[in-house]
């Protein structure tokens, strides 16, 4: 693995004594794409929230590009270059699509660069036709793309995607997979996803979370064949895995 862009050491989050994430040691290389899978409540989203400053860890360390960023505030972590698409789309419902993207781009770019970035993202995410519409009026799949577009507009070094295809049609899911394949050439990514078909489309390496810990880290083929993974997770996802 190249020098890690993200590393966690003993990362732990307890809620009232119950560990949601329990001593996770994790490394992600520059330009690497990793999928996180695991049953509901395994700690994947909590792990993301600690990396992005939405939750303060109970113990452990988060290193981003070698620097300790544990417990830093959300806007500072975003400025370091960490972007997240959350599980439930987190959007500016009262603003239109173009302005939402522009706000994201303008935070780190000049006015003309921001306009160029917004135009490119509108084309890449097929949102041109709804650029002038309020985000709150869009269909669920389009809302997912708007959020993804806003995160991309910042041009993050590390992109965290929490269930990016939830609620998408099969066609939208395929387009998302194609977009992620294009994006991975430019940045490191961690994708949390339950749709194993989608995971197979995009991932090489997979980390399996179970009860707040890492159960296994391996190439996708090996994970799919592993008896423990089948028992704790894939057994419950036979229909989507098939």
């Amino acid at each position: 693995m190249s020098a890690p862009i993200l590393e966690t050491r003993g990362l732990t989050k307890r809620f009232g004594g119950v560990p949601a994430v329990d001593g996770v040691d994790f490394k992600l290389g520059e330009g690497e794409l990793r999928c996180l899978i695991g049953p509901n409540g395994a700690g994947k989203s909590t792990f993301f929230k600690m990396i992005t400053g939405q939750l303060a860890p109970t113990a452990g360390t988060v290193l981003f590009r070698g620097a300790d960023v544990t417990g830093e505030e959300r806007h500072r972590l975003a400025r370091h270059g960490i972007g997240i698409k959350t599980q439930v789309p987190s959007l500016f419902d009262g603003l239109d699509v173009r302005e939402s993207l522009h706000l994201a781009a303008r935070r780190f770019h000049g006015a003309s660069d921001a306009r160029r970035i917004v135009d490119a993202i509108l084309a890449e995410t097929h949102l041109d036709a709804v650029a002038g519409r309020k985000v709150g009026e869009l269909a669920h799949g389009q809302r997912q793309w708007v959020e993804l577009g806003m995160v991309l507009a910042r041009e993050p070094l590390l992109l965290l995607l929490d269930e990016p295809t939830a609620g998408m049609t099969p066609d939208e899911t395929r387009r998302t997979a194609a977009l992620i394949a294009r994006l991975r050439q430019r940045r490191a990514m961690i994708v949390v996803e339950h749709d194993m078909h989608f995971v197979r489309m995009i991932a090489e390496a997979v980390t399996v979370f179970h009860q707040g810990r890492i159960l296994m880290e391996a190439p996708i083929g090996e994970v799919l064949r592993d008896a423990r993974v089948r028992e704790v997770y894939l057994g419950a996802h036979k229909d989507r895995h098939a």
């Binding site: 992005t52 939405q54 505030e73 959300r74 806007h75 975003a78 400025r79 972007g83 997240i84 959350t86 987190s90 959007l91 500016f92 419902d93 009262g94 603003l95 939402s100 706000l103 994201a104 935070r107 780190f108 959020e147 806003m150 995160v151 910042r154």
Partner: peptide, 14 residues
Amino acid sequence: VAIRENELRAELLG
């Protein structure tokens, strides 16, 4: 206005 709309998202954008 963006912060009024969604403070968490605005912060996650920096």
